[in-house]
């Protein structure tokens, strides 16, 4: 059978046990969980499955999937009471996804991920289990163990209890360590680094802190609440309610020989390719110290087109570094 037919069958076999386990589930939720469009759940799907059953196909032998209003129920589907075990493809996809979330001793959810992995592996058929474990030996995340994992666990425990945490944090924008009291709201990973989204109490602002720049974390007694409707994913997409007027628009040009590399690694959203193969990157930022630090990496390859203040700051920092090598330049 070609793809489509199998897709339909896969959907049916996924959806029937779900409805059976959660009688009265809403069409929307079912659609969200299975990826099957709501119109299909309310239309084609019952039309198909309600014709299926076991001989002699009397009414009680036929599946009875009913959509009433926005609620879905099922009767007479004893044979579809459980989902089919995971196929190799599904098991591997899950293995990869879990590896991306946390592996070994890193990440705030390492324990949960290990638990899922263990439980799922036990539920695989022997053949799939063997293949997954064979492949699994060769699939892994490479992370530096470091303090980050430890800090994240402290922060997550504090968040579960909703108590504030005092952290010693290295701020890349000031280049210094300072102590702050934060209320953790959530976590995300980006480019291999874990970040905690938290309200900084003194500043009364929601900010992100990179876990491996937290030197120490000490939970306190004071409780806090995460605002209703706060979502890490949304925060991450939109960033902090940024004071746009105070942000600086920065333009940096990279020569043709490093243009591709810049596109892949320089933290700007927008790149414009010039006729000679060079690229111009633009980004907006409130702090500049981190950008100067980033630009120092690129040496003569990157040119700050605008604004001149960043150029001055960069030159100053480079001179300060140069002084370590026994040279003072004016």
């Amino acid at each position: 059978m070609k793809g489509r037919g199998l897709v339909v069958l896969r959907k049916v076999l996924a959806i029937l046990p779900l409805v059976r386990a959660h009688q009265g589930i809403s069409v929307a939720e079912l659609s969200r969980l299975t990826g099957i469009p709501e119109t299909e759940i309310a239309g084609d799907l019952p039309n198909l499955v309600n014709l299926c059953g076991v001989p002699p196909y009397s009414p009680v032998d036929l599946v009875d999937l009913e959509v009433e209003g926005d609620r879905v129920t099922i009767r007479f589907a004893e044979q579809f009471r459980r989902p089919v075990r995971l196929t190799l493809k599904e098991a591997l996809a899950l293995e990869l996804a879990l590896t991306g979330v946390a592996d070994e001793d890193a990440g705030p959810f390492a324990v949960a991920v290990a638990g899922i992995r263990e439980k799922v592996r036990r539920a695989l058929s022997p053949r799939v289990a063997q293949e997954v474990s064979q492949a699994g030996e060769h699939i892994s995340a490479v992370r530096s163990p470091g303090l980050a994992g430890k800090m994240l666990r402290v922060l997550k425990d504090a968040m579960n209890l909703q108590v504030v945490v005092t952290i010693e944090y290295f701020s890349r924008s000031s280049g210094r360590i300072s102590s702050r009291v934060i209320e953790p709201y959530g976590f995300y990973e980006q480019a291999g680094h874990w970040y905690v989204v938290a309200r900084a109490v003194e500043r009364d602002r929601v900010m992100t802190f990179r876990a491996d720049r937290i030197r120490s974390a000490t939970p306190g007694d004071e409780e806090y609440e995460i605002p209703d409707g706060f979502e890490v994913a949304t925060y991450r997409r939109q960033g902090p309610p940024s004071p746009v007027e105070s942000g600086v628009m920065v333009t940096v040009r990279f020569g043709p020989e490093i243009a591709r590399f810049a596109r892949e690694t320089f933290p700007a959203r927008e790149f414009v390719e010039d006729a000679d193969g060079a690229v111009t990157a633009t980004l907006q930022t409130t702090g500049t110290a981190w950008l100067v630090s980033e630009l120092l990496r690129w040496g003569g390859g990157a040119v700050v087109v605008d604004p001149p203040e960043i150029r001055r700051e960069l030159a100053e920092r480079a001179r300060a570094a140069l002084s370590r090598y026994g040279e003072e330049t004016c």
């Binding site: 996804a97 991306g100 979330v101 705030p108 959810f109 968040m159 709201y185 959530g186 976590f187 995300y188 990973e189 980006q190 995460i226 409707g229 706060f230 979502e231 890490v232 994913a233 991450r236």
Partner: peptide, 8 residues
């Protein structure tokens, strides 16, 4: 909602 935002 608050806890984890993996990107895959």
């Amino acid at each position: 909602q608050q806890l984890l935002d993996p990107r895959l």
